[in-house]
Simulated assay, not measured.
Amino acid sequence: MQLLRFESSWDKTLSDKDRVMIQQFFLETNVANDESIQFIPLRQALNYKGDLLVTVLIHNFSKQIHLFQDKTLHYLENNKIVAEHIFTLPSLIIESKTSMPWTFIFPTHSLIGHLTLENARLELVDITK
């Protein structure tokens, strides 16, 4: 059974409204059709420095812990890659059969094209292919 967990700093600072929204997305999307990592988009925005902030609900449907150690992520809009960055996040550990919200920050230098912040998704790049 898939569990929804919040990283401790999120758990302390998350508004009631956002918590309810994340719980609703979890209930609507926590059915796995395979044993993979899936990203459910929640929101995206640019910060004051021009960095892209992408908040997602990460589903780890696998039977293994997933670490974000040297993982390349693509940010796509309308199926076109508009940002790419390698993430090493020692504090982001997604346990087996667990879902967790997270915000990935793509620095300005990782942006490839013009952003619309619409029709977006994250994709984990499998470098073993």
Rank of each mutant, 00 (worst) to 15 (best):
A83D: 02
D51R: 01
I112W: 02
S99G: 13
I37S: 08
A83Q: 04
D126Y: 08
L111W: 04
E95I: 02
I22T: 05
Q2G: 12
T98S: 11
Y48C: 11
T103V: 02
N47E: 02
L46R: 03
I94Q: 01
N78H: 10
Y48S: 15
H74P: 06
L4A: 05
D34L: 12
H59G: 10
F39W: 00
A32P: 09
N47F: 03
P41F: 07
T29F: 06
Y48E: 14
N33W: 03
K97P: 05
N79E: 15
D126R: 09
S110W: 02
T98I: 12
V54C: 14
N119H: 08
A32C: 14
E95R: 15
I81Q: 01
S62I: 08
F6V: 00
V54S: 15
H109K: 12
S62F: 04
H85P: 07
S36E: 09
Q23K: 11
F39D: 00
K12E: 15
V31M: 11
I40M: 07
L46H: 07
R43N: 06
A83I: 05
L73S: 06
F6R: 13
M100I: 10
F39K: 00
I65W: 12
V31S: 14
F106R: 03
H66D: 15
L57G: 11
I58L: 10
L89S: 06
V125F: 02
Y48Q: 14
V56E: 07
